Computed example of a mutant assay.
Amino acid sequence: MSEDPSPGADPKKIEELQKEVERLNREKAEAEAQAAAKAHAAAAAAEEKAAAESKMKMELESQKAAADAKMQAELEAQRLAAEDAERKRKEKQEKSKSRRRKIIGGIVLLIVLVLVVLVASSSVTVQSGTTTNYPYITTYSVWFPIGEPVDISGHKLIALSDGNEMMFSADGSVTKLVRSDPIVIGEQAATLTTLFGKVPVMTINYKVILEYQGNTAENQAYFKMLIQSDKSIPEFVVNFMLPKNVIAQAA
């Protein structure tokens, strides 16, 4: 700021005023320069701080992404390990089941083969019996072919039709039959053996009563057969005791 020197002003004072003005201008310029420098420094610091914060943020995000990726990789590894363990467990279980099935199948096959051998090698021999106490009674319906000899427990039997009458021959003794007439076959003892007669299984004492029921249209004589025995008789043993030309059904 300058003042126009008025006429008659002291030149020295004017010079001092000019110097003061110049000093003030320098100070102002310096202050403005310092303010500008401070502003620039502050701006640089702010920019540097922002850059540091941005860098730190990026590093944190990178670390977080790396941690997430590591966790995902660990979870995936755990999942794959669990799936592999489950697959191995199922394979082991299937192998174990397969072994058990093979073992059970082998045992069943062995049992079947043993049973087949035992049944195929089984037979029944009959001889005179001695027991008179028969608490068991088994009933069968049987059909004899008329005119054909049959053998039951060593007894020769023939059913003969003579017009409206039925004649029955038992061991050469001929009897005229009417409905419900009984024919008693004496006491017998049947021994069931297997392995071709080498191993006895059981001996059953019994007697047979045949009750005539009439003729059929197929030229057969129909009888009700009662087997009285000292123990229960399995059906397959009865089948051994009857010849193939006699049809029998459990009644």
Rank of each mutant, 00 (worst) to 15 (best):
V178I: 09
V142Q: 00
G172M: 09
Y140M: 02
K207P: 02
V117C: 10
I137W: 00
I209H: 02
A189D: 02
E211G: 00
F144E: 06
K156C: 10
P145A: 15
A189N: 05
V174I: 14
N215T: 15
G154D: 11
T175P: 12
T203R: 08
P200I: 12
S153C: 15
F196R: 13
V126A: 04
H155G: 01
S141C: 08
Q127G: 10
A170I: 09
N133F: 09
K176W: 07
T193F: 06
N133P: 05
K198I: 09
P135D: 12
F168Y: 04
Y212E: 12
D162L: 10
I152P: 02
T216K: 10
V116D: 05
M166E: 07
G197W: 01
G147F: 13
E187D: 12
K176P: 07
T138I: 03
D181P: 06
L160F: 12
T125R: 12
Y136V: 02
Q127T: 08
Y140F: 05
N164Y: 12
M202E: 06
T216N: 09
N164H: 14
V208Y: 00
G163A: 10
D162T: 11
V150K: 01
N133L: 11
S173A: 11
M202C: 05
I204S: 08
T203V: 10
T131C: 11
L177T: 04
T216M: 10
P182S: 15
L192E: 05
Y206H: 15
D181S: 14
K156E: 14
T194S: 13
V119H: 13
N164W: 09
A170E: 06
S122G: 08
V124P: 09
G129M: 01
P145H: 13
T138D: 05
G214K: 10
S121M: 09
Y134S: 01
D151K: 06
T194C: 10
E165S: 10
G172C: 09
S173N: 13
G172L: 11
V116Y: 06
G214Y: 08
I185C: 01
V126D: 02
Y212A: 13
P145R: 14
K156R: 15
T125W: 05
M166W: 03
V119R: 15
Q213A: 03
F196W: 13
T175C: 14
F196Q: 11
G154E: 12
D171I: 01
V116I: 13
N205G: 06
V142L: 00
F196V: 15
T193R: 13
N205T: 03
V117Q: 06
F144I: 12
A170V: 10
Y212F: 15
I137Y: 00
T139R: 09
D171Y: 01
S153V: 11
V124S: 14
Y206E: 07
I183P: 01
T193Q: 09
H155K: 04
L210Q: 00
Y212C: 10
T175D: 14
I185H: 00
K176D: 07
N205W: 02
G172V: 08
A217C: 14
S153N: 15
V199G: 03
T130G: 08
T194P: 07
N205L: 02
D151V: 07
V184F: 04
Q127R: 08
H155M: 04
Y206A: 04
D181I: 07
